[in-house]
């Protein structure tokens, strides 16, 4: 029992998982509809678009960069797909081209950041505005509607697996599983952690850090493009201003899940919980009938609390001062370390 407790406590995601459970219990207690299969499916479906982007953003943040342009890329992909279809390109082809276009955007972001050595905050702030502008021009400032209801639309968003599970959920879970395997189990994932953990060390170990970062920028934009298409198929339309704000929500979800903004630390599981938590809170507040203007504020509080708790738990895991009682669960000997691991400041 004690061992189990210890293992859960030293898990990086322990804090956010506990918080998620508490929040779900809270909404379950105060609303009668929260814990129904329909509602939970609904929440998961709503979290799909953000969740898919969050997975890729997690890669990017762990490697030490971030991307403010994904909200714009999201809209770009959906709008360009509809524009191409209207000019007679087959649906499947226009979807593929939209995804390629998204990946190219990511490639450019990556090259600007790594080769021109511009901080990603500035670089992607610039591309965010440029792409949004392009979307507004291409869409002629009006919402684009997806008329097609064929197989492609079905596969990308409007269908339901076994007649019960909305397709976006399948996409989300697929992306989560693949991301988890790649990040935790492959040499590429290792290099992502190494690049963000200590970029000089990574270079000295023979890792091409620029290539790692560019790949992550491409993954991120690709995921944004994919999310855009899924949203397009599900909602059957896209507004040219859609997607604004996703970039920050994805960062928030990642950070809630325990990823350090400085890079090198984080996990897919945590980020998934983070994205799910954001969806739960939005959903729960609606069910409780709270003033919709309060939603953002509540989310803000959750983000701040999550970051503080993660930092504290992180310090405790390393044997620091906060929550000193946790030390009893750790089997540390005298590791011959001159400085005790705690670094009081």
């Amino acid at each position: 029992m004690r061992d189990l407790l210890r293992r859960i406590l030293v898990m990086r995601e322990a804090g956010v998982l506990a918080a998620l459970i508490l929040i779900m219990l809270f909404f379950g207690f105060f609303t009668s509809t929260f814990f129904t299969a329909t509602n939970l499916t609904n929440v998961l479906r709503q979290s799909a678009v953000l969740g898919i982007m969050t997975m890729a953003v997690t890669f990017l943040i762990i490697s030490g960069e971030f991307d403010l342009s994904i909200g714009s890329t999201f809209a770009l992909s959906a709008v360009m797909a509809t524009v191409m279809m209207e000019s007679g390109v087959p649906m499947i082809l226009s979807f593929l081209l939209a995804l390629v276009l998204s990946a190219i955007v990511g490639f450019l972001n990556g090259v600007i950041v790594t080769k021109l050595k511009i901080p990603s905050f500035i670089a992607t702030l610039g591309t965010m505005m440029i792409i949004r502008s392009a979307v507004l021009v291409a869409s002629e400032r009006r919402p684009r509607v997806l008329g097609d209801r064929g197989l492609v639309a079905c596969v990308f968003g409007s269908g339901e697996l076994f007649g019960a599970i909305p397709v976006p959920i399948v996409w989300l879970l697929g992306v989560v599983v693949i991301s988890w395997i790649v990040l935790a189990k492959t040499p590429f994932g290792y290099k992502v952690y190494a690049t963000g953990g200590n970029i000089q060390a990574a270079r000295l170990s023979g890792i091409s850090t620029d290539r790692v970062k560019i790949t992550n920028f491409m993954l991120t934009s690709f995921a944004a493009g994919l999310a855009g298409l899924i949203s397009l198929c599900f909602l059957r339309m896209v507004a040219p201003v859609q997607g604004g704000g996703y970039e920050l929500e994805a960062i928030a979800a990642t950070v809630i899940g325990g990823t350090a903004l400085g890079g090198g630390v984080g996990s897919i599981f945590g980020a998934f919980i983070g994205a799910f938590m954001l969806a739960i809170i939005k959903n729960g507040l609606v069910l409780m009938g709270t003033n919709p203007y309060l939603q953002k504020g509540v989310l803000g509080f959750v983000i701040l609390i999550a970051v503080v708790v993660n930092l504290r738990l992180g310090a405790a895991r390393r044997g620091g001062r906060p929550l000193d009682f946790l030390r009893r669960f750790r089997k540390t000997g005298r590791g011959g370390s001159e400085d005790p691991p705690a670094s009081p400041s």
Binding site: P187, Y190, A194, G197, N198, A201, A202, L204, G206, V265
Partner: peptide, 18 residues
């Protein structure tokens, strides 16, 4: 310059030949 401080001993040793 060379260590990944937040990574394990194992991960640090394996880094060149991962």
């Amino acid at each position: 310059e060379a260590l990944y401080y937040t990574h394990s001993v194992r991960s640090n040793i394996a880094s060149v030949i991962i």
